[in-house]
């Protein structure tokens, strides 16, 4: 009986394994610097995506390319960009990438949000989000010299401290806005592939825009606005100390009190 149970278990494991055996290889393309914050953030995201992939059957690689190389690739799953706003706009508007998720990692330019492009996903907080966050804070603390940013090394809530700890442990530097955005973009993609079991660009884009509830380790499951902006809280920092999170308590509209809410 014991023997039978053992075999039954082994058989079950064999039944479960095939799902893992068919590994999906996902190649992501990236235009931007191959050192510094955003690069390290993406490396952290890749390590985490591949750890999950070990268990669920995905393998992720990130290939740095030039814009010219990008424009001559046969197939593209997703494009990550750490470049200036004009270049981001140009790539996102290109006909050949109309159904490909294009991630803007580092530019906070409002015009990338107000453009309302269906394939452009803005990961970091926009200028207007930061301005609105600061305005909410200044209303209550008019004398404050605080500024707004997306991430902070002392951010602890929502398991942010675990992310700060493991990032610094792996790379020897603190996590900042750009490294968070790089990390988040790769994790958004790996979340999408794991849940859809697919790396087709069109399916991924649809899932990202409509279905994802992403754990960015900064609170609520994060979703995208129609503007392509990732909803998220913004931090207020004074003298390098974290003083508040926006939206501030009592402000109507929740996360949508920050930045451009919708497309006209």
């Amino acid at each position: 009986m014991q023997q039978f149970k053992k075999w039954g278990f082994a058989l079950l494991c064999m039944l479960v394994q095939p799902a893992l055996a068919a590994t999906i290889d996902v190649q992501l393309h990236y235009v931007g610097p191959t050192e510094g914050s955003v690069w390290l953030g993406m490396q952290q995201g890749l390590d985490e995506a591949n750890l999950q992939g070990e268990f669920l059957g995905q393998k992720y690689t990130l290939k740095p390319v030039t814009v010219d190389e990008l424009n001559h690739l046969d197939s593209v799953t997703a494009v990550l960009l750490a470049s200036d706003a004009d270049q981001v706009l140009e790539i996102a508007k290109s006909e050949r990438f109309a159904d490909v998720p294009i991630f803007n990692l580092t530019s906070d330019a409002d015009k990338l949000r107000s453009a309302c492009l269906p394939n452009l996903l803005n990961i970091s907080a926009s200028q207007k989000m930061k301005q609105d966050a600061l305005a909410q804070w200044m209303k209550k603390h008019p004398e404050s010299t605080a500024h707004a940013q997306g991430w902070h090394k002392d951010f602890k809530k929502f398991a942010a401290s675990q992310l700060n700890i493991r990032f610094t442990k792996a790379h020897g530097v603190i996590m900042d806005d750009d490294s968070w955005a790089g990390w988040a973009a790769v994790k958004l993609l790996s979340d999408t592939v794991a849940r859809t079991q697919n790396d087709d660009a069109t399916i991924m884009l649809k899932y990202l825009k409509n279905d994802i509830a992403f754990d960015g380790q900064k609170g609520e499951g994060a979703t995208f606005r129609k503007t392509g902006q990732l909803r998220q809280l913004v931090l207020l920092v004074e003298n390098n100390k974290l003083v508040a999170e926006a939206p501030l308590r009592g402000v109507k509209g929740g996360l949508d009190s920050l930045g451009l809410k919708s497309c006209n």
């Binding site: 053992k6 278990f9 079950l12 494991c13 479960v16 893992l20 985490e48 750890l51 999950q52 268990f55 669920l56 398991a159 675990q162 992310l163 979340d191 794991a194 849940r195 509830a213 992403f214 754990d215 380790q217 499951g221």
Partner: peptide, 26 residues
């Protein structure tokens, strides 16, 4: 595993992960 959204099944006889179940975030 909170940050990779899985339930891991460990078989105690061999101390190996024998299945992984993807669940909602965290």
């Amino acid at each position: 595993s909170e940050s990779t959204n899985m339930v891991h099944v460990i078989d105690t006889a061999q101390h190996k992960v024998v299945a992984n179940i993807l669940v909602a975030a965290r």
